[in-house]
Design a protein around this nucleic acid. Structure first.
Lengths: 221, 221
DNA sequence: ATTTATTGTTAATAAATTGTTAAGAGTTCA
DNA sequence: TGAACTCTTAACAATTTATTAACAATAAAT
């Protein structure tokens, strides 16, 4: 699976070291040298996982984390802190800021890799999801693959479907859908989602997108 | 059975006294001198039982308890407060924070031991502790799982069942149900809950939701 | 044993939510 | 420019869910 990981650390060595390892493990890696750039980059590439150094100039990890958590379109992004060995994370109170986990920097490579793998797996798995699903979302080509056939979708429909498929079975509320597909500042009518859902059903098959009345929609392979 | 018990208390004497007794009773004992360390230790060793002093520097028992309860991987852990003699625990409102019981510190040794034994027993063998109710509420999927089967429920029914199942055996008064499922400003007729209960019984089996006449309803696995 | 308060049941009705269609505004691209 | 596509909306239909009324059944109290 094509996971996107964003590394945020001010130490070039660490950035390089981890970037190297993660890239070789098959992840798409983005980097930023401080909190500000990190937030900006996160909004741009919408990574699956963000590894945040706790101590940084400009905007430290904690602030960056809180800032990222303020953006609803990044609600499914996993955030993990990078800490120096021995730091007691619970005292750093990073969970308060919305982090999901923390990883010790000087950990051995294979341990690091399996930790990251586990992290990505734990929080719903786009990886196996797309494998299991009869539907594959190809972000790079902006195309949906169904039974070998490729289906081109307009932007909104694609974004909506991608969201639903990203976590099969999980119900996405209408609000979550608005925030993710439209953004929290745009206001569109109540029927807009319905119409897009209808079009998707037309194109990918009627029985895969399920209505949960009063809540939202979910995708079931 | 090889039970792990975590003692959290700032008084070294008590720590030593209890640790000694518990160890000799065959338990594996871990200790921590304050709330912070206690939480960290709990996450590390995943004890079956945590004995928490109510009064402590840094992070008191109440806070620590609430913090521990936030970690899902410790959901099966039993938490008991240690109180000075004479303190009325119900007034300490520790149950609010998620505690399971309380134990008076200055109790005699053999009484203490049998209390702890009972505590561990009451909450089932650690092995079977993971065996949950015959019903699982899957909030993410907005689905109820029963014997492997998934049952979809409408909004109100789902909320009502989720409330009851959240604390099996506990009786929820009609008022509590109204407040939780409808909200304290909405007023609906007297039969409304009944009808929802009826529908739930229809769907999940007649004998799991029990009427406590004059009070309310409860769920029994 | 009878009364009383409470809960169960049913079906009808109201309310809420979603589905559908077609039309129009805005875009894109040849 | 204009043809094709995308997005949004209004208006209405269809469906699902929630609530109520009326009455039956039951448990608790006298």
């Amino acid at each position: 699976m094509d996971y996107r990981i964003l590394l945020v650390d001010d130490e070039a060595d660490i950035l390089e070291f981890m970037s190297y390892n993660l890239t070789h493990a098959g992840y798409t890696v983005y980097t930023a040298a401080n909190g500000h750039d990190g937030v900006a980059k996160a909004l741009e590439v919408k990574p699956h996982l963000i590894l945040l150094d706790v101590m940084m100039p400009q905007m430290d990890g904690m602030e960056a984390c809180a800032e990222i958590r303020r953006h609803k379109e990044l609600s499914t992004t996993i955030i993990a802190f990078l800490t120096a060995r021995g730091e007691d994370f619970s005292q750093i109170a990073g969970f308060e800021a919305g982090a999901d986990d923390y990883i010790t920097k000087t950990i051995r490579t294979n341990v690091l890799m399996s930790r990251i793998k586990a992290l990505l797996k734990r929080h719903g798995e786009p990886a196996s999801a797309t494998v299991e699903a009869s539907l594959t979302i190809d972000h790079e080509r902006h195309i949906v693959l169904k039974d070998g056939r490729s289906i081109a979708l307009p932007r909104k429909e694609f974004a909506l479907l991608a969201l639903l498929v990203s976590k099969p079975q999980r119900v996405f509320t209408r609000e979550e859908i608005y925030d993710s597909v439209w953004g929290n500042d745009v206001f569109v009518g109540d029927r807009t989602i319905d119409v897009h859902i209808r079009k998707l059903r037309e194109k990918i098959g009627n029985d895969q997108i399920i209505t949960v009345k009063g809540i939202g929609y979910k995708y079931e392979p």
